[in-house]
Amino acid sequence: MLFDHRKFVLREIPSGEDCPKNLTFEVNTEKSSSSAVYDYFSTKLADIKHHNGMDASLLELEDKGRVEMVLKYIEDGDLRRWSLLDIRAFNIGLSEWRSKLNCFTNPYMYEQLLEISAMDVIAKGKSYISTRQKAANKVLDKALKIRLGRGFYGECLGVRADGISELSDEIGKQLSVKSATAGLRPIGAVIFMQRRNLKMCLRSTDTATDTSEVAKAYGGGGTPSSSSFIIRMDEYNEWVSGNQDEHANV
């Protein structure tokens, strides 16, 4: 059997004559694959009893609640609901397990899955987020004013992040808040060299702000809250010219 929750899979399922007779597709866009598998086999075992009269079960009673909580968090992320408390931290904390979740290369996968606790995963994710935010804070004092599109799209705060571009999301979001507090557009611009090109990433925590209008005007793209584009060095210099003396007052 093949379980999936992604809509595009429905288009990929072969027709009856092309589909192997021993293969069954179970596609449910309202339930994550992991939850679907768990529910399917739990139901299969519901009518089975051990020789001692006890009902068969996938899990021991002491593991059931903990595992089902993990499955709820996985489903919340898989279906892009993002409704559970600390779901972002959970997804980040779970990332280190992903390399282990392969039944072909890891014969102990099932036993390791039983050890996962949603609270432990969330704690690990929060620790990771905190570490990255502290690293991002170190460059915020170097922020300077950026004239987006030479001022056509307003002004915001920006910072060079060469060598720490992996923190561009955290830096950009914090700059967005700081920029709004300074009376500028609620956008944070993070600039760094990438493969000999100067890249500018724009982030905003303001739902009414569309950063992609700037990115698209310069050949880039993205979403309202997150976008990026490549900018020529001479053009970038025009965006920051005359502002170098102002960053100390930001």
Rank of each mutant, 00 (worst) to 15 (best):
T181C: 07
Y38F: 15
P20T: 08
F41I: 09
I230T: 15
D210T: 02
V240C: 05
Q244V: 03
K49A: 02
K72N: 11
V37E: 08
G222M: 03
L79F: 05
Y236A: 01
R232Q: 08
L113G: 15
S212L: 03
K72Y: 06
R147T: 04
L94S: 04
G65P: 12
S32V: 00
A118K: 14
I48G: 04
H247P: 07
A135I: 04
I122D: 02
L114D: 09
F8L: 14
T105K: 15
S95Y: 10
S83D: 09
G222W: 01
Y38Q: 13
R196Q: 12
D120F: 02
S212K: 05
E75D: 07
G221Q: 08
A143Y: 12
F8N: 14
V139L: 07
K124L: 02
G151S: 01
Y110R: 11
A89G: 00
N22G: 09
K124I: 00
E246A: 06
E30Q: 13
L71D: 07
T105S: 14
S241R: 03
Q174E: 06
D76V: 01
G65L: 15
F192K: 03
N52L: 13
P186W: 05
K138S: 14
E111P: 08
E62K: 05
P224A: 04
E115T: 10
L45C: 12
W239M: 13
L71A: 07
I129W: 08
T105P: 10
K44G: 09
K216L: 06
Q174K: 07
T24A: 01
E170V: 07
F192Y: 11
K7N: 10
E68K: 12
R160I: 01
N249C: 11
S42Q: 05
L144M: 13
S130Y: 13
V121P: 04
K138Y: 11
S204I: 05
K138G: 10
M193R: 13
M69S: 14
H51Y: 14
Q133P: 06
G53M: 04
S95D: 12
R6N: 06
S99P: 09
I164H: 00
G163I: 05
D141Y: 13
M54T: 14
Q244A: 03
N237R: 15
R66Q: 15
N91K: 09
M193L: 13
V190P: 12
K216F: 04
V159K: 03
D141A: 15
G16E: 06
A56C: 14
D210Y: 04
F8G: 10
I92D: 05
T131I: 07
V240Q: 06
M1C: 10
N28A: 03
E96F: 09
K142V: 03
L23T: 00
S117K: 00
R66M: 15
E12P: 09
L140S: 07
S176M: 11
A118F: 13
I13Q: 02
W82Y: 03
K145R: 11
T223S: 05
M69Y: 11
K7H: 12
G220T: 02
K7P: 09
H51M: 14
K44T: 08
L175W: 01
R98L: 15
G221C: 08
T207A: 11
H247K: 13
P186K: 02
R66S: 15
H50L: 10
T209G: 05
S35I: 12
K138F: 11
S225N: 08
M109V: 15
G183V: 01
R80L: 12
D141W: 14
H51G: 14
G125W: 05
A217C: 02
L202F: 11
A182T: 03
K142E: 08
A46W: 00
L114T: 11
